[in-house]
Amino acid sequence: MILVSVITPAISQAVDRLSADGIAVALIRDMVSMVRDAPRDTDVLLVADGAVVAQGHYDALAGQAGNALLVTDDSRASAPFERIDAGQRWAGLGRINPALLFGTLDMIGDWDLALTLVRSAVQGGAVRITVPQDDLLEGRVALVDGQEQADLAAQAVMSTGARSGSSSRGGIEHYLFGPLARLLGPALMRSQVPAMQVRIGSIALAGIALMPLELGWPGTGLSLLLLALLLAELADRLDEMALRRPPSGWIAFLAPGLALIGVMLSGSGMVPNYLALLLGIITVADRWRRTGAARPWMIFTPGTALLVLLAALLTGAEALGFDIAMLAAIGSIGAIILSRRGG
């Protein structure tokens, strides 16, 4: 339920995106619709307008019984939040039971529900969960009222997702493509570029890259394949910023699969084919997070292989490049197997 005074185009677009994710949305514009739609047999979560709160704090409130508020100590970092007493401010998230909700609805006349609910919860002795100051400084809890706060919150979402392993990758995807995607992601999110469009672009570019490889221009083809894999990584980051898990099905393997075809086309003999098969196994393990305790530098991904082959091509040592890539792929698979814990 979203409390609104005027339904703007931005709100309509947000509702469309939520509905596309399977979330039922109700726009509340007056007291009558609030009384009609609010649940009477369960607690509700109150989220302040513009609040961005990390999932862990939602979990903390879910573990409480009855009314609870997420609060922060008064400081320069917490200045955008609403003050609730001399030493603390409301951090934008609260758990409200039905008695307090409907009692407040019966009491107030003007449409200022959120702050009235918070004040009623404070007066009723609601449990307070204090947010560490580091969460405010690093954007894991923020009140977004401008682009600077939005960018900080977006970076916090992506860094948290990377730490939790939602998009744990190896090789060049971890050391180069990941940082570049985190840098470019907020700008694309501000432009409302869907992750699926970027993913389709990466697949199309990977397909186009096969043409110069067929025509005998391996340098151009390998470079385009690297760019395609960067776009695929960027699509994953956009999914994370939208709080969606990056895909792990067939669509996630199209761009890397085309890159493996490019590996086969960039050389002669059977060695490129064997290398592509080994890289395919590593790609599946990397995407499905089945690499055990192997460190990112131990995972020889398609992007890393393309970089090695491109460097070998530029130095005139194509055959040596394939030999090095084959040894690295074998070593990578060995590291993944040996680093797995016994079940």
Results as ranks from 00 to 15, higher is better:
residue 3 L to S: 10
residue 4 V to W: 01
residue 4 V to Y: 00
residue 8 T to S: 13
residue 8 T to H: 14
residue 9 P to K: 08
residue 9 P to W: 07
residue 12 S to C: 04
residue 14 A to D: 13
residue 14 A to L: 14
residue 16 D to G: 14
residue 20 A to R: 14
residue 20 A to G: 08
residue 28 I to K: 14
residue 30 D to T: 04
residue 30 D to I: 07
residue 32 V to D: 12
residue 33 S to L: 08
residue 35 V to N: 09
residue 43 D to T: 14
residue 43 D to L: 05
residue 52 V to Y: 07
residue 56 G to M: 05
residue 56 G to D: 08
residue 59 D to I: 05
residue 63 G to T: 01
residue 70 L to E: 03
residue 75 S to Q: 07
residue 78 S to D: 07
residue 84 I to F: 01
residue 87 G to C: 03
residue 91 A to I: 01
residue 96 I to Q: 11
residue 97 N to H: 09
residue 98 P to R: 11
residue 99 A to C: 04
residue 101 L to Q: 03
residue 102 F to A: 11
residue 109 G to E: 13
residue 113 L to W: 07
residue 115 L to D: 01
residue 124 G to A: 12
residue 131 V to N: 01
residue 134 D to N: 04
residue 135 D to F: 00
residue 142 A to D: 14
residue 142 A to L: 10
residue 142 A to P: 02
residue 148 E to A: 15
residue 150 A to Q: 09
residue 151 D to R: 15
residue 153 A to L: 00
residue 156 A to L: 00
residue 159 S to T: 12
residue 164 S to Y: 01
residue 187 A to F: 02
residue 189 M to D: 11
residue 192 Q to G: 03
residue 195 A to R: 05
residue 198 V to D: 13
residue 199 R to T: 05
residue 201 G to Q: 04
residue 206 A to W: 02
residue 208 I to F: 14
residue 208 I to Y: 10
residue 209 A to D: 07
residue 210 L to F: 10
residue 212 P to M: 11
residue 217 W to N: 14
residue 220 T to H: 01
residue 220 T to C: 04
residue 222 L to Y: 06
residue 224 L to R: 06
residue 229 L to R: 15
residue 230 L to Q: 12
residue 243 L to V: 00
residue 248 S to L: 13
residue 249 G to I: 09
residue 250 W to Q: 14
residue 252 A to D: 15
residue 255 A to E: 08
residue 255 A to L: 14
residue 255 A to I: 13
residue 259 A to Q: 13
residue 276 A to L: 12
residue 279 L to N: 04
residue 283 T to S: 10
residue 284 V to Y: 02
residue 288 W to Q: 11
residue 290 R to A: 13
residue 294 A to H: 06
residue 297 W to D: 07
residue 301 T to A: 00
residue 302 P to F: 09
residue 305 A to M: 06
residue 313 L to P: 09
residue 314 L to I: 06
residue 314 L to W: 12
residue 315 T to E: 02
residue 317 A to Q: 09
residue 318 E to S: 11
residue 325 A to C: 09
residue 326 M to W: 13
residue 330 I to S: 01
residue 331 G to Y: 09
residue 334 G to S: 11
residue 336 I to K: 04
residue 339 S to Q: 09
residue 339 S to E: 04
residue 341 R to H: 03
